[in-house]
Design a protein around this nucleic acid. Structure first.
Length: 279
DNA sequence: CCCCAGTCCTGCGGGC
DNA sequence: TGCCCGCAGGACTGGG
């Protein structure tokens, strides 16, 4: 579930690790199947030992620790992963940690209930290839309206499905795609190549508005309660959802209309048939 | 290029 | 009451 706003909240929440030197990198002993860590933990520990963290960045839905050697540790929370400084929700789902010296925060924790997350160490060159090698789209908060249009305008795919494609645009997931299209009054089944220039501008403006507001509220914690910020506090944006997980409830814009749920590419989409149109 | 179905995994909630 | 099944969806893969 963590999408751009949740991952950005995690990033901001762990900035206290900047300046810290790695004393230890470790897996938690865990009865569950271990998460994927590359390279394997003993080798990772050897490579990280003594390196200093100089920055914490975000690459789409990934948290990126930058080291003084140029190495990057890429942490992907995927569905249920959390990057924390303390207060893990459970002991049994703790997966990976760094012990640090010389920074206000002495420990970084990766917690993941379902264990689909990943931790990968890359060299500066490998990271460059990942981030700028063309396999990932531009960040959702860094694109202009025209860039956004160019990413999708040739595609015959439905806009809701296309927005989730991280090769075209980084950071939007299933929840925020529905929210953005409702605010922009665009029907989620609209083909990208039938969307006019002014509508791309509206989508662009709404994309920014939704993501920035969600960041202000520190992301969305859904009814499963999984997503938390770096100190295990819930987010607040779920109280501002217009359509997501609100099937049958009134449209916040249209008196009398109710939110419907459909399935697109095996994923739930929520929208209002009255105010979200194809043109 | 595009699309779809299946895969990983766990916890939960609905239905019987 | 208790058990089972299906669902949640981020990223990836293989097949059409």
């Amino acid at each position: 579930m963590p999408e751009l706003p949740e991952v950005e909240t995690m990033r901001r929440g762990i900035l206290e690790i900047v300046g810290g030197t790695v004393e230890r990198a470790f897996r938690y002993p865990c009865r569950k199947r271990p998460i994927e860590i590359q390279p394997r933990i003993d080798r990772l520990q050897r490579k990280l030992l003594g390196l200093q963290i100089t920055d914490v960045q975000r690459l789409g839905k990934r948290v990126v620790l930058v080291f003084d050697s140029g190495h990057r540790l890429v942490i992907e929370p995927r569905m249920t992963g959390l990057v924390l400084l303390a207060n893990a929700p459970t002991e049994e789902h703790l997966r990976f940690g760094l012990e640090l010296s010389g920074s206000p925060a002495s420990r970084l924790i990766f917690w993941d209930r379902r264990g689909l997350g990943r931790v990968t160490l890359l060299t500066a060159a490998e990271y460059q290839t990942l981030a700028s090698g063309g396999s990932l789209g531009p960040d959702a908060l860094a694109v202009s309206a025209e860039q956004l249009r160019q990413q999708f305008a040739q595609s015959g795919r439905e806009i809701k499905v296309a927005l989730l494609d991280q090769k075209r645009l980084l950071g939007v997931g299933n929840l925020y795609a529905s929210e953005i299209l409702h605010l922009a009054q665009v029907h989620p089944g609209t083909r990208c190549d039938r969307i006019s220039r002014p509508r791309w501008e509206a989508i662009h403006a709404c994309l920014r508005e939704v993501l920035l507001q969600a960041i202000e509220f520190e992301g969305s914690t859904l009814s499963d309660g999984t997503y938390r910020n770096a100190l295990n506090a819930v987010g607040g944006y779920q109280n501002h959802h217009r359509v997501y997980d609100r099937e049958g409830e009134p449209c916040p814009r249209c008196p009398g209309a109710r939110i419907v749920r459909i399935v697109q590419a095996q994923r739930s989409t929520f929208f209002c048939k009255k105010c979200q149109t194809r043109r």
